[in-house]
Amino acid sequence: MNQLISLVKKDLLIEWRQKHTLFGVLLYVGATVFAVYIMNGQPEVKVWNALFWITQLFVAVNSVAKSFLQEHPNRFRYYFTVVKPTTFLLAKMLYSMVLMMGISLISLFLFSILLGNPVIQTAVFVGVTAAGSLALSAVFTFLSAIAARAQQNAALMAILGFPLVIPVLMILSNLALSAISPVYQEGWGVMMLVLLALGVLVIILGLILFPFLWQE
């Protein structure tokens, strides 16, 4: 447990010290939102929702990719003499979730400034965004581990991840829609549970499979 906390702390500290990567991602979000604004102006509600989740997807690919890909392969050997692989993966996932959640909230803020703010129930939308960051960052952290082991770049991670997260994105945009437009959605709670269960499933799968990835 202590190891877990100190690993997460270490990653966040590195993130804070190497500010260029963090601000790089923030600039990426800002530029994306601005590009969307230039192309489309202020879109209607459904399009706004779709654009928001597409942006989240690309932010996830770009920010979470760093969790494994940014570290030097030799440093992993050191980590594995010190901690258990499952602890290491959990730490990486926690770190990406924190990062992803922060960036999602910032992009929500940017969206509401530039593209208009159709959100009626802010708390619900923020909740869905949090659940979404959890699921997206869990999936992409694990795939980034695979891509790092295959000595490939973030493009491979995107190829591996997009098909798997399409249904997650569909669930997310459906959930978020009820916070945006005043439509009554049947089975909202069940869908939310499905999403959270998926997140848990991904974490469990990752914990089971990750040790295999690291045997040399």
């Binding site: 295959a150 798997l164 669930i171 499933l201 799968l205 990835l213 045997q215």
Partner: peptide, 20 residues
């Protein structure tokens, strides 16, 4: 090893998604 890990991950994730 890596492709086996991905295959297991993808298959196990796909099954619930196909029902959702």
């Amino acid at each position: 090893k890596i492709s086996a890990v991905y295959n297991v991950f993808a298959f196990a994730m796909m099954i619930p998604l196909l029902f959702v």
